[in-house]
């Protein structure tokens, strides 16, 4: 108990020190508030947005895009992976096609979707679903490949039908990978939402940051980034809670043993 408390005190004081130095440096004139703003201004801006309720519509817009995009992407991705992965011929046919599609940075198509589908909800949902689709598809696909042949053979010897195999072997074995995919998909979805909002939008947290940036209003940019950070932290915590609920045996600390994928 005691060491944990002192650790948190140390962490808080580090943050406090950084904020203090930031404020002091802009007061004295080492840093130009035009570029870095000041903590007081950022705090005031945040309070302004919250107290006037302005932030609510932006927050809801971004969450709306994220929710729909994630839902569609996850459902379609997992379904397609199960469909393609459960058949050897389909797997072979689609492998190169997906490799090619996957080599393309999906975010680069954001401007095209906006041209096609307007500046409102639809292009963002499409972009997010495609990004999420690929992550979920790949991870689920990997999961299906790891299902042990012996288990399947044993089940079939015992007279299991295809549906039983799916429910009792494939699904549990794949669940770990689906959750891993989800953990990657959430930050990627946030990134896609923000990027699409940067390109063109009329509302949303990304829109707030972009508009502030274009107006050289750095306090606004920082305030919007803090809101985005909060959304990211809450979403990550949500996925973590989901993981503990679905896969209590599968514990993995995010970031500490980092191998591979990242939220870029």
């Amino acid at each position: 108990m005691r060491p944990a408390v002192s650790l948190n005190i140390a962490r808080t004081s580090i943050i406090a020190t950084i904020i203090f130095i930031w404020e002091l440096a802009t007061r004295i004139g080492y840093l130009d508030p035009l570029y870095v703003s000041t903590p007081v201004k950022v705090g005031k801006r945040l309070w302004e947005w919250i107290s006037s309720g302005e932030i609510v519509s932006h927050l809801l817009t971004t969450l709306h895009e994220l929710g729909l995009g994630l839902l569609i992407g996850i459902l379609v991705g997992v379904f397609m992976a199960l469909l393609v992965g459960s058949n050897a011929t389909l797997t072979e046919v689609f492998r190169p096609i997906i490799t090619v599609a996957y080599s393309f940075p999906q975010l680069a198509l954001a401007p095209l979707y906006i041209l096609w589908f307007g500046v409102y909800l639809l292009p963002k949902v499409i972009l997010i679903s495609i990004v999420v689709f690929f992550l979920m598809f790949f991870n689920t696909f990997e999961g299906i490949k790891t299902v042990e042949r012996e288990l399947i053979d044993a089940m079939r010897v015992l007279g299991a039908r295809r549906r039983d195999l799916f429910r009792m072997v494939v699904l549990p074995a794949t669940a770990v990978y689906v959750v891993t995919g989800l953990r990657h998909a959430v930050p990627f979805a946030l990134r896609a939402a923000v990027f699409a909002e940067f390109i063109s939008s009329v509302r949303g947290l990304g829109f707030l940051a972009m508009v502030s940036g274009r107006a050289y209003d750095s306090a606004g940019v920082y305030a919007a980034l803090i809101c985005l950070l909060a959304v990211g932290v809450v979403l990550n915590a949500g996925v973590g809670a989901l993981e503990r609920a679905i896969l209590p045996w599968h514990r993995q600390e995010i970031g500490s043993r980092f191998k591979g994928i990242g939220n870029v």
């Binding site: 650790l7 140390a10 962490r11 580090i14 943050i15 975010l107 930050p187 946030l190 990134r191 923000v194 990027f195 940067f198 990304g206 940051a209 972009m210 502030s212 940036g213 274009r214 750095s218 940019v221 920082y222 919007a224 980034l225 985005l228 950070l229 990211g232 932290v233 990550n236 995010i254 970031g255 500490s256 990242g262 939220n263 870029v264």
Partner: peptide, 20 residues
């Protein structure tokens, strides 16, 4: 000491820093 701060910073999509 720093890992929760680093993880929090890591949560923010890098793309979001573009206006900055």
């Amino acid at each position: 000491l720093l890992s929760p701060l680093i993880s929090a910073a890591y949560t923010l999509p890098r793309v979001a820093l573009m206006p900055l």
